[in-house]
């Protein structure tokens, strides 16, 4: 009996929650030209292109990359406009529910390897524009393999509980009402489509980002190494000016002409395709986020 109640409560709490009707109805047709900017801000191709794709093949969103994390291996799917293997048959509402609520068209939960915890903060009109742009991309046939996850992470329904804890459309950093317009734009780009916090913020044991250490750097979820602290705290980028940050996002060079590396190389290529004012806005926002010391543990000094 108790088990039965527990199961019923679990079922209620874990129910996938879609966007409301009014939001879906308001999506409209979207504008592909405007959507291209959102596409680069979101970096869709960095995970959904074939591994190692370069040049124009980065626009063929066949999926298949393997993201090896402590929870298992996630494989981004085909999101090209192919009607069978991609998302060509999705409605704008299906797309918005996947992006902003992590709910698939069949009503099941998507894994947060698709960073809907960030995309939830996006403006629905931008999501509609993005979808219009993605429909202009090449159609690619073929499905990517499934995720390889072990129990309990392979129970999709359980993600409903995880979402109750971590899925919110509210901004992370509160800004005063009179905050400069470009800081607000930067917040939107960083916390929403850019999903910077997904890698630059440490995660707790069940994989949620720790907002009290927002953007303070983290142990890399995939592979070895760390993702740097991009706050002005110790170990961070206090010494970088706004124009240093904007220049880095455009050229890939740090103020002392070290270069971008690791997974950020892809991100920087995407950022370079934004408008100059977008990169400046990101820089302005990063200079206003609360300063934190490094969100990853200091390396153990060598013995002796």
């Amino acid at each position: 009996m108790l088990g039965g109640i527990g199961a019923a409560v679990f079922w209620l709490l874990t129910e996938p929650r879609r966007l409301d009707e009014a939001t879906i109805a308001g999506l409209g047709a979207g504008d592909a030209a405007r959507g291209e900017r959102i596409f680069w801000a979101g970096g869709c191709t960095s995970c959904h292109a074939r591994p190692g794709a370069e040049g124009d093949t980065r626009l063929e969103l066949a999926g298949g990359m393997k993201l090896k994390t402590p929870f298992g291996t996630f494989v981004p799917p085909n999101i090209s406009p192919d009607p069978k293997d991609g998302i060509g048959n999705w409605s704008a509402g299906d797309f918005a529910n996947a992006m902003m609520r992590g709910v698939a068209p069949d009503g099941s939960h998507l894994y947060p390897s698709l960073p809907y915890t960030s995309y939830a903060r996006m403006n629905p009109a931008d999501v509609a524009d993005l979808y219009a742009f993605m429909k202009t991309l090449p159609t690619v046939a073929g499905s990517a393999p499934d995720h390889e996850l072990s129990f309990p992470f392979n129970v999709r329904r359980g993600l409903g509980l995880w979402k109750l804890l971590f899925l919110s459309d509210q901004p992370v950093v509160a800004l005063p009402a009179d905050a400069p317009e470009n800081v607000a734009l930067g917040r939107y780009l960083v916390e929403g489509p850019g999903h910077c916090g997904e890698c630059h913020t440490p995660r707790d044991l069940i994989g949620g980002t720790d907002k009290s250490r927002w953007l303070s750097g983290a142990v890399a979820a995939e592979g070895d190494g760390i993702v740097p602290n991009i706050t002005s705290g110790e170990g961070g980028i206090d010494s970088w000016s706004e124009s240093d940050i904007a220049a880095y996002l455009e050229t890939g060079f740090t103020p002392d002409f070290d270069s971008v590396g690791g997974a950020m190389v892809e991100v920087q290529h995407n950022m370079a395709k934004l408008r100059a004012e977008d990169r400046e806005a990101i820089a302005a926002y990063l200079k206003t986020v609360p300063a934190h010391p490094n969100g990853y543990p200091a390396r153990t000094p060598p013995a002796g």
Binding site: G225, V227, G252, V260, G262, E266
Partner: peptide, 17 residues
Amino acid sequence: VGSNCASCHQAFRVKKG
């Protein structure tokens, strides 16, 4: 010349704490 910096650091460098 400069594209070599990022492309090599993408695959062959790991940031440490």
